[in-house]
Each structure stands twice: as structure tokens, then as C-alpha cells.
């Protein structure tokens, strides 16, 4: 019984969004447009839950002197600093909130992103120890495409960039299309199971 109302809401919202795609007439269009805005608002409201959890977890770690608890104040100070500056002075450019974002969060994000250069090299190095012929094919095609995208590839053999481009346009497209079509059918089946209440574990109830 406790799941009945949520399942009805899931069903109605799901069906309205599907109909909204095909029926431009009111009231479907109005309800569909409204629902698209509303669910974004509801999902955004949930961020306070996460923030509360973050604070709760780190305060608990400090209180219980858990492992690495000395870094929990760093989390809390960073969090409170951004919240305070944003709420007190606003988010416009040149204000403290924006300054901290530009000088600290942006470089840290870019640094984490740039770690990929090292990780992609280590992943490629490990993958070169190919265990079967298909794995060999994977790294052979990776190698050819990589070479084709740098000047040295053309200097080794002028056909490499052409072959590289062909591999991206033909077999790559074929493989990607097969994965996309299969995944799309998976999405359709999963969505139908959600909408019709066949899959309901996300509500925390019995299956």
C-alpha cells in the first residue's frame, strides 16, 4: 500500500512525458512542459539532502576520531566558505565566491582531468599485453587511429591518416551504431518496467 501512490505517480509522469512527445495539443503540451520544469526543481531541492549528509558524515568522523578525521575539517571549511561567500555576497564576477571558484575549483578540476593523460598511457601500456586476437585487434586499431592524428603518422606512411579517418568513419560507426541501438532497446525496456511498476526496487520496497 505504501508503494501504491508512488507507483501511480511514476506511471502518470511517465505516460505524460511519452504522450507529450507526440501530442502538441493542450493540455498534454502544458502538463508536459510543466512536468519538465517541475522535476528539475524537485531534483535540485534534493541537493540539500546531500549537503546535510556531507556535513553529518564529517562531523561524525571528527567526533569519533575516525581514520583520517583530521582532514574532515578541511571539507567543512571549504564547504562553509563557499556557502557563506555565495549567500552573503552573491555569485557575480570578481566577488569572493567567484574568485575562489576561478582560482581553486577550476584549477583542481583541470588537474584531475589532466590526470587522464597519465592514466590513458598506463591503460594503453597494460592493454598492449593482449590476451587474445580480438584484444590485439582493439589495440591495433587504437594505434593506427592515434598515429593518424599526429604529424608523425603521415611522415611514416602517407596512407596512415587516410586509413585512420576511414576507420573512424566506417567500422567505428558500425560498432557504435550497434551498441547505441542495443542500448536504446535496453532503455525502452527498463523505462517500461519502471513506468508500469514491474521494477520498483528504487522505491525501497519489495520487488
Amino acid at each position: 500500500m505504501r508503494l501504491f501512490l508512488p507507483l501511480v505517480i511514476t506511471f502518470i509522469c511517465g505516460i505524460v512525458m511519452i504522450l507529450h512527445f507526440f501530442i502538441p495539443h493542450r493540455p498534454i503540451s502544458t502538463i508536459g512542459d510543466g512536468l519538465t520544469d517541475w522535476y528539475m526543481i524537485v531534483a535540485s531541492a534534493a541537493i540539500f539532502l546531500g549537503a546535510a549528509n556531507l556535513v553529518q558524515v564529517h562531523v561524525h568522523r571528527i567526533n569519533t576520531k575516525a581514520r583520517n578525521w583530521k582532514y574532515s575539517p578541511v571539507v567543512l571549511i571549504g564547504f562553509i566558505a563557499m556557502m557563506a561567500t555565495g549567500l552573503l555576497w552573491g555569485v557575480e564576477e570578481t566577488l569572493p565566491f567567484d574568485y575562489m571558484f576561478q582560482t581553486m575549483i577550476v584549477p583542481m578540476g583541470a588537474t584531475m582531468f589532466s590526470l587522464l593523460a597519465f592514466f590513458v598511457a598506463s591503460a594503453a601500456f597494460r592493454a598492449f599485453r593482449a590476451s587474445n586476437w580480438r584484444a590485439t585487434l582493439l589495440l591495433a586499431s587504437a594505434f593506427i587511429v592515434m598515429l593518424g592524428r599526429v604529424p608523425i603518422g603521415g611522415m611514416i606512411w602517407k596512407q596512415i591518416p587516410i586509413i585512420s579517418e576511414w576507420m573512424m568513419q566506417v567500422p567505428n560507426m558500425a560498432g557504435q551504431r550497434a551498441v547505441m541501438i542495443g542500448a536504446a532497446l535496453g532503455v525502452v525496456a527498463t523505462s517500461l518496467r519502471m513506468i508500469f511498476g514491474i521494477e520498483r526496487s528504487y522505491l525501497g520496497g519489495a520487488d
Binding site: 556531507l54 571539507v75 556557502m83 549567500l87 581553486m104
Partner: peptide, 15 residues
Amino acid sequence: HLFVGMSAGYWVIYN
């Protein structure tokens, strides 16, 4: 830890 805390705060304010 600083990145986690600051970015969490940033996204709350952004939202």
C-alpha cells in the same frame, strides 16, 4: 578534501 568540500558548496549555491 578541500576540492570535495568546496565543490559541494559551489553546487549548492549554483542550484
